[in-house]
């Protein structure tokens, strides 16, 4: 209860302050309008103010000029930007190579986990996806491609041609740049 009272009081104080400020502003505005309407006093004041500010600006320019002459050569903005870009590229390279290395290890662990331990499989999959890896599946009847597929086992299905994929056993994983982290494990059809 005490707290709410304090809050209420602070609100009212703010409101009062705001009201006082707007009253002061209104009075100033009306005084300026009155002076402008009479002409001279306002004009004189403006000219004096302008003169002051011009002198101040001239002083600032002189100071800046002095400091520029005194200071050694500073690189142009474009040079600094180039350096920043180079640094950014180096950092991106380091980050990417480290990330790829981590992803490769994680994908290898994923392929080593037995399929029946679904909980761990799901967790590792989620981790891989969070880190930017993309899963891919092998299609049934697709020709075996050792670049992206790995034979997990062989089956004999007379309805399928020899040397094609019968079933996809595990998904493969790749990075956004297309690097294969782990090949998809498939079962291959072998007709005797």
């Amino acid at each position: 209860m005490a707290v709410s009272k304090k809050v209420l009081s602070s609100v009212s104080t703010k409101g009062q302050r705001r009201a006082r400020r707007s009253e002061r502003l209104r009075k100033t505005m009306s005084a300026q309008t009155r002076r402008t309407a009479h002409g001279k006093p306002a004009k004189h004041a403006c000219v004096a103010k302008q003169r002051d500010s011009t002198a101040e600006l001239a002083r600032e320019v002189a100071l800046l000029r002095e400091s520029l002459v005194a200071r050694p050569h500073q690189p142009a903005i474009s040079e600094t930007a180039d350096e920043l870009n180079a640094l950014r590229r180096v950092l991106a390279d380091i980050f990417e190579s480290r990330m790829t290395s981590v992803l490769q290890k994680l994908a290898a662990i994923r392929q080593a986990v037995p399929l029946d331990i679904t909980e761990i499989c799901h967790r590792v999959d989620a981790l891989l996806e969070d880190l930017g890896a993309i899963p891919f599946e092998a299609e049934r009847c697709e020709h075996l491609d050792p670049v992206i597929h790995e034979v997990g086992k062989e089956v004999q299905d007379d309805q399928l041609p020899d040397g094609v994929i019968a079933i996809s056993l595990r998904p493969g994983w790749r990075t956004v740049h297309g690097q294969v982290l782990a090949r998809a494990v498939v079962s291959l059809n072998r007709r005797l």
Binding site: A86, R89, V90, D93, A138, E142, I148, G172, H177, G178
Partner: peptide, 22 residues
Amino acid sequence: DRGRYPLVPQVVDTAIGRVVRE
């Protein structure tokens, strides 16, 4: 490449699109 030494990835066309190898 301008002071950096990136690996030239080997591009291979596959069923899942272009993949790169080190």
